[in-house]
């Protein structure tokens, strides 16, 4: 199997998360009227790690936290060869009039975020929505979507595949770049 190139190792991974948490605290203070929502499945891992850091770095921070599954909102339903099975959505609050921060591990074509924003509309009309992503792949965006908080920027060919590994699932925090898409698992 092809070896991926490590583009962010364990140490820098942690630093990047710390920086993102401080950026969020800088803009949102105590997170008054703000809710944080992770997109299933990998965005939830990012959101959980960052919510822990935010609470550690600002003890006064208080916010609603939820998980959003976008399977039923995807624009490739009946266009994929293999259907996707959904994960849980756990949002037990309304986002009406709130500031919403959504989290995903990789921002690439922007289709996931587009679906997520459609899905969010079913929980109320948010005041504003911001996006946090750990990896911003700058090429081949399909929609006019931009992240407000970015971990690292990656400029890679379309054939390449970026994989974020988490210590919860893969033993170690790191980000890998594979040259060919077929190495996706």
């Amino acid at each position: 199997m092809e070896q991926g190139k490590i583009i962010l190792d364990k140490g820098k991974f942690q630093l990047t998360l710390e920086r993102l948490s401080y950026e969020l605290i800088e803009n949102h203070g105590d997170f008054d009227n703000t809710c944080l929502i992770g997109i299933q499945e990998k965005g939830v891992l990012l959101a959980e790690r960052l919510t822990q850091l935010i609470k550690k770095n600002n003890r006064k921070a208080k916010f609603d936290y939820g998980k959003l599954d976008i399977t039923f909102y995807r624009d490739d339903f009946r266009r994929r060869t293999t259907p996707l099975s959904p994960s849980n959505t756990e949002i037990d609050f309304l986002i009406e009039g709130k500031n919403v921060i959504i989290f995903d591990d990789v921002l690439y074509t922007g289709r996931t975020i587009q679906a997520a924003m459609n899905a969010l509309g079913d929980f109320g009309r948010p005041n504003r929505v911001e996006l946090v992503t750990l990896v911003n792949r700058r090429f081949n965006r399909h929609f006019p979507i931009k992240a407000d908080y970015e971990g690292i920027n990656v400029d890679a060919l379309d054939e390449a595949y970026v994989k974020v590994e988490w210590k919860e699932d893969d033993k170690e925090d790191r980000i890998l770049l594979f040259a060919g898409k077929d190495k996706k698992n």
């Binding site: 599954d69 399977t71 039923f72 909102y73 959904p86 994960s87 849980n88 959505t89 756990e90 309304l94 459609n118 899905a119 509309g121 079913d122 929980f123 109320g124």
Partner: peptide
Amino acid sequence: NFKEVINRPIKKVP
């Protein structure tokens, strides 16, 4: 997962 959907304020997906 659909049971969660039909318990939302807007009980509909596209």
